[in-house]
Simulated scan of single mutants.
Amino acid sequence: MKSSTYKKLLLLAGMCYFLQGCKDEINLPSQDESIYDQIYMPQAVNGPVSKTLVMKEEEQSLIYGANVGGRGYPKSDIKVSFYLDADKLAAYNTANQTTLELPPAGSVVLSANDATIRKGALATEPLKLRIKTNGNNALKLFKNYLVPISISSDYKINANLQTTYYLLRSEPDISQYPDYDRSGWTVIGFSSQESSGEGPNNGRAIFAFDNNVNTFWHSQWTGNGAVLPHYITVDMGSVKMVHGCNFIQRQASGADGKANLMEIHYSKDNITWQKAADIQLQALQSLQKIWLPEFVEARYLKFVIVTNHSKEFSNMAEIGAF
């Protein structure tokens, strides 16, 4: 028993000696910790803030503000100013290969241009970016805007988080635009269809309008096969105001044959045609509802698949309009 106790004491003494030796070898360089004391916009931490707003009568808002990071709490008040940094627009578009614009004057307003991080606090009070989506001086529907909000201060600023980029877009409430009944629709044209290779209840163009997601239209692949572009033309039976179109890709895994870039054309008389939109679909099996950039009156619609996500042939489970 005494021997065991003696061994434990020796082990403990050895550990103390080892730890003491390690401690003596540590030699941290002196540094000015105040260099870490900087203010920043917390909304900028995760990159651009992207928001699609539903058009409403009432004003809508997003939050902005400033925080201070570093050691401890500020020992005095920190004054911060906020402003729409229009000079950042061109650089952002160049870096991201976009063509975004600033919002119309008066459509986006800062609730306050100045705020204070109080002594002993770490942030300003939350401020509101007030946004109009309806009426005069409002965001235009379906248009993408960039709103760069930057901070300035006598206090040191984290340059990487000095600006928050808000990407804004306004759309109508899609729940107010139900899908049109397609029971009276007629397929009046198509580039090709697979009449035999997909069985009796698949392949033909009519199966893109039968309210059954498990059936589908398929461009011809037997024989020589058809090549892109592929299209279907329908007669809706009467002139309607078309606000957008919806699509359900074939219910098969993978991207083969799933539409990517599409054109939507419209006509009232099946003689004079105009393009309504260039759209892009994802290689998904779920419903995709796409707004037209401008609402159009039409009786006839032509859906042209320009490119696919994979393969030369195309297929589609359901096509509709609202």
Rank of each mutant, 00 (worst) to 15 (best):
Pro103Leu: 05
Asn93Asp: 14
Gly203Met: 05
Gly47Thr: 05
Trp185Met: 11
Tyr92Phe: 15
Asp210Tyr: 04
Pro293Leu: 02
Ile319His: 04
Cys245Met: 14
Glu318Arg: 13
Ser34Ala: 09
Asn260Cys: 13
Thr94Ile: 05
Lys8Arg: 14
Tyr64Met: 04
Val213Lys: 12
Leu11Gln: 12
Leu19Cys: 03
Lys240Ser: 03
Lys240Arg: 15
Phe190Thr: 03
Gly189Met: 05
Ala44Lys: 07
Gly244Asn: 09
Ala13Ile: 09
Asp24Lys: 02
Glu263Leu: 04
Phe18Glu: 03
His265Ser: 05
Ser175Met: 12
Thr186Met: 11
Ala321Ile: 14
Glu59Cys: 00
Thr164Phe: 09
Pro178Ile: 09
Gln193Gly: 08
Pro104Tyr: 04
Leu129His: 09
Phe303Gln: 02
Leu228Arg: 06
Ile26Ser: 00
Leu100Gly: 10
Val306Arg: 06
Tyr64Gly: 05
Ile157Tyr: 11
Trp217Lys: 11
Ile157Phe: 12
Leu12Asp: 13
Pro172Thr: 03
Gly14Thr: 12
Ser238Met: 06
Asn93Gln: 12
Phe82Trp: 10
Leu9Cys: 03
Ser152Ala: 14
Ser4His: 07
Met55Gln: 13
Asn224Thr: 07
Phe142Thr: 01
Asn144Leu: 11
Asp37Gly: 08
Gln282Ala: 10
His230Glu: 03
Ala44Thr: 08
Val213Ala: 11
Ile264Ala: 05
Trp217Leu: 10
Ala66Asn: 01
Trp185Ile: 11
Ile26Gly: 00
Met236Cys: 07
Asn137Pro: 05
Val108Gln: 05
Gln176Cys: 07
Pro126His: 02
Gln282Trp: 04
Ser219His: 04
Phe190Cys: 02
Ile149Thr: 04
Asn202Gly: 08
Ile271His: 12
Lys119Cys: 06
Gly237Asp: 11
Lys143Leu: 12
Ala205Asp: 10
Asp256Arg: 02
Ala252Met: 00
Asn246Val: 08
Ala91Gln: 15
Asn315Ala: 13
Ser107Phe: 01
Asn96Glu: 15
Ala205Trp: 05
Ser253Ile: 01
Val304Asp: 02
Leu122Gly: 07
Asn214Ala: 04
Ile290His: 01
Pro293Asn: 09
Asn137Glu: 15
Ile290Thr: 04
Phe18Asn: 03
Asp235Asn: 15
Lys56Pro: 00
Ser4Val: 12
Ala276Lys: 07
Asn27Arg: 09
Ala66Met: 01
Ala317Gln: 12
Leu301Tyr: 00
Ile188Pro: 11
Phe247Leu: 03
Ile117Lys: 11
Trp185Ala: 10
Glu57Trp: 00
Leu168Met: 08
Ile188Glu: 07
Lys132Cys: 07
Asp114Ser: 13
Val49Gln: 15
Cys22Pro: 00
Asp114Glu: 15
Ser50Pro: 01
Phe190Arg: 03
Tyr300Gln: 07
Arg71Trp: 04
Pro178Gly: 10
Leu102Gln: 08
Lys8Leu: 14
Lys240Gln: 12
Arg182Phe: 14
Gln285Asn: 15
Arg71Tyr: 09
Lys132Arg: 15
Gly197Val: 01
Gly47Tyr: 05
Glu58Gly: 00
